[in-house]
Design a protein around this nucleic acid. Sequence first.
DNA 1: AACCTGATCTTTACGCTGTCAAGTTTGGCA
DNA 2: TGCCAAACTTGACAGCGTAAAGATCAGGTT
Lengths: 209, 209
Amino acid sequence: MILKPMTKEPNHKPHHHGDLRTALIQAGISLLSEGGKESLTLRKCAARAGVSHAAPAHHFDGLAGLRAAIAKEGFRLFRLSMLAACDDNNPSDLDRLKGICSGYLNFAIENPALFDLIFSAAPMAGFEADLEQGTTFAYKVLRDACAPVVPEGQDPMVVETQVWSLIHGYTNLYMAGRFGPVDPTQQARGPFDAVMALLDTFDATTSKT
Amino acid sequence: MILKPMTKEPNHKPHHHGDLRTALIQAGISLLSEGGKESLTLRKCAARAGVSHAAPAHHFDGLAGLRAAIAKEGFRLFRLSMLAACDDNNPSDLDRLKGICSGYLNFAIENPALFDLIFSAAPMAGFEADLEQGTTFAYKVLRDACAPVVPEGQDPMVVETQVWSLIHGYTNLYMAGRFGPVDPTQQARGPFDAVMALLDTFDATTSKT
DNA sequence: AACCTGATCTTTACGCTGTCAAGTTTGGCA
DNA sequence: TGCCAAACTTGACAGCGTAAAGATCAGGTT
């Protein structure tokens, strides 16, 4: 009688490669951080993973699918960056919100091409479902940080829109060099204090205690 | 001996185009608005202008140069859109600023790919000089609109950074569909009122008369 | 008049890209 | 065992940016 392997993973195991799908995503992230968004290529990802140029087609639906998958992972890292910037010991609600925003900018400075990718919807048409999941996942961090400073009786969406627009706009403009040269060491962040100062005004609306 | 053509037939068109450079830029803008940023191609621009695919090389330094030239024209149109949205009869300083911001969003809705192009620095590396000229040209409109609401003794850069980040961030997020589907008719602009509401708070800082 | 020179545009070619179609390998199962 | 479907390879194709070299033309020089 034939003995069947008892320990079998529930998922289909790739035959040649250990986990090609993950390897391709990681290769793509590396390519993005090394050569910018122009360097993200199906063929380069395949070569870096050690497979033929057409192998990615079996794991992603074309380049758009790969980009969507990378964006999904990018949102996960983005969320971690936001949380890492405000894990101080019991800061105030406002300090926590400012920390989240600081992490927002940090992530863009540390991963410029990946930040660009996750917020560019165009080249991932047809994958809105995957993207929306990643968006809401990361957006929840910002939403939770905004909640404590929302005035009573006001729609939380108002403050969320204001804060998100503010930090997202500053980050984009800073990364595009509109506030001067970008400093990859995060020492010089341009007039970021102006953003923090405006966030400070959100405190006054609720500090009635 | 292989016979060679002794008489040259006029199979070549006249080697002079009226204003090929301008025609290529206009063709590029049309391509952007019709097919999105992926449709902007040197060869398509050349074909639309009725010249061979390599003709643009003599007027622009590659694709990056064409993009920079298109961006420069885009900034001019962008400035006009901002000004057109606030040419009411003697509005207040704050209403004027809100009109500028409304025009900011209008331009992005009406010219999504062009708006994307003018604020994406990456694919135009080496042409910062051209771009900075266009940026400052359009930025001056926003700066002038911010000036009247700057509190006395404060650096105008603070308010400019806050307002620019706010409107730029909202426009980008709205265009990326983060506030729901984009409405090309400009009827539904998402939670844009939240941005306007925050701009209203800038009034209180100076209304001491 | 003939000549030349630089600018403009064409032609050809190369490598890289995404994508498709068809063939090959492999692991697991009846 | 023999088969099957998934994973991957191979080959081909059109479109892309770019470079080199040829063709044409306008205008000034001699």
